[in-house]
Design a protein around this nucleic acid. Structure first.
Length: 411
RNA sequence: CGGGAAGUAGCGCAGUUUGGUUAGCGCGCAACGUUCGGGACGUUGAGGCCGAGGGUUCGAAUCCCUCCUUCCCGACCA
């Protein structure tokens, strides 16, 4: 991708305070439309899609099947679980021209259970796991920190349906480990903890938190035992009172729902003995857009973002420092083509900007590798490769560049 | 929903206390020239119902009232 033909409106100054919010605005990942409402710009959307791809891979591995449920939902459905009242405050609700009462789905337990109630009637159809990646709408009291708490956000929600508690446990455990894989593949360090099921309900639930300065939760950490805990009392392992307070962001939450929804929405099946029982459910959510914020907070420095390879919008950024130097420019262009043909995703900054602007932008945007083609090095037959994470600079012979990059990026 | 801060050019801000006639600065944008390994320099230029409405006044970005919006802290939540 040629930088000059791309749409990356970077900003020099922003007044927002949250770390990830600042960086996602400065790097041109998102743009604000109103409080809690954001557009994804091309760079941000690339990241979102990569995260979604990782999630899909791991969901598919658990045997979950992807569906896409409607965001528009009749309020009557919500009356069956009484959650039209419980969630009244956060629901975006309205009437259509026929006076039909609708809401924009803040979550999808009702819709998915209704679907299963319609089509599942035998133990032979179970287990079943369905998931979707979809936009949720919540009328937030106080949106904050950009993608961290917004009124419209992308969520992955999965729902498992089983014949008994034992089978649910198996799915729950599979999801638990899938979640750990997803987050670590996104370049995150997360903490899994037992949690309060809240309005989703059910008996047991676990949440997955990512440490970060803009996090909304507070957790405590004991250096000695290397464990996190929620109650501000003492370390549950060594009873020490010397622990650190940390901010953390909830990225995922898995719930053992049992029969809470299936009973109310009539999702029953006949077992081998012909007995009629409610389907046993689990529910598994990930705040997809929020992952972007968490990743930024855990992977950045004063200069900008440091994308983990797996979700970086591009594999590398190629910077031609002196675009009006014909030799330099044609060499850079040739490199760009060769790398692209090899399947590498390259952002090629060939703008007629000053060197400082291009380098600062490159650090801000944060691709894992920066390939700097400058006149001086070029005349000596060298090209510079900077590893964004540790700022390590290496000079390679220009004939060896493609090879060196293949080694670094494994592509 | 309670508390705080703020709305002036695309972005970041000064000016408001003490009202005064053509509303400023930096960056960005357009053009030309000079630069070219760290947001470079010069010249010229475009761009504002000073958040909205109402009031006070000869006169309002500035004083008063109402409303809207945004950010931050708390309560609540993925």
């Amino acid at each position: 991708m040629l930088f000059s033909e791309y749409f990356v409106p970077t900003l020099r100054e922003v007044k927002e305070e949250s770390l990830s919010f600042r960086l996602s605005l400065k790097a041109g990942l998102i743009a604000a439309l109103a409080s809690g409402i954001y557009s994804y710009l091309p760079l941000g959307l690339r990241v979102l899609k990569k995260i979604e791809a990782i999630i899909r891979k791991h969901m598919d591995n658990t045997g979950a099947l992807e569906v896409l449920l409607p965001a528009l939902q009749p309020l009557d459905l919500w009356k069956k679980t009484q959650r039209d009242e419980l969630l009244a405050e956060v629901m975006v609700r309205f009437q259509d021209r026929r006076g039909r009462k609708l809401c924009l789905g803040p979550t999808h337990e009702e819709v998915i259970t209704d679907l299963v109630a319609r089509f599942v009637s035998s133990y032979k159809q179970l287990p079943l796991i369905l998931y979707q990646i979809q936009t949720k709408f919540r009328d937030e009291v106080r949106p904050r920190a950009g993608l961290i708490r917004s009124c419209e956000f992308v969520m992955k929600d999965a729902y498992s349906f089983d014949i008994d508690e034992k089978n649910l446990q198996k799915n729950y455990q599979n999801m638990y480990s899938a979640y750990n894989s997803i987050f670590s593949e996104c370049g995150l360090r997360t903490i899994a903890m037992e949690a309060d099921p809240g309005f989703i309900g059910g008996s047991i639930s676990h949440e997955f938190l990512a440490e970060g300065p803009s996090g909304e939760d507070v957790v405590f950490f004991c250096d000695k035992c290397n464990i996190y805990f929620k109650e501000k009392e003492e370390c549950p392992q060594c009873n020490s009172r010397k622990f650190k307070e940390k901010r953390a962001l909830e990225l995922g939450h898995i719930f053992n729902l049992g029969t809470k929804y299936s009973e109310k929405l009539d999702a029953f099946f006949l077992d081998k003995e012909g007995r009629r029982s409610p389907v046993i459910m689990g529910c598994y959510g990930i705040g997809v857009s929020r992952i972007i914020s968490a990743v930024i907070e855990q992977n950045c420095d004063k200069e900008g973002i440091i994308w983990p390879k797996e979700i970086s919008p591009f594999d590398l950024e190629l910077v031609c420092l002196n675009s009006d130097d014909k030799d330099l420019f044609s060499f850079s262009s040739r490199i760009y083509r060769i790398l692209s043909d090899k399947g590498l995703e390259v952002l090629f900054d060939q703008r007629a900007e000053s060197i400082g602007v291009k380098l600062n932008d490159a650090y801000l945007l944060g691709m894992p590798y920066l390939v700097i083609v400058g006149r001086k090095n070029f005349l000596e037959g060298k090209i510079e490769i900077i590893t964004r994470s540790n700022k390590e600079r290496i000079l390679v012979d220009k004939e060896r560049l493609v090879e060196a990059l293949s080694e670094l990026t494994d592509k």
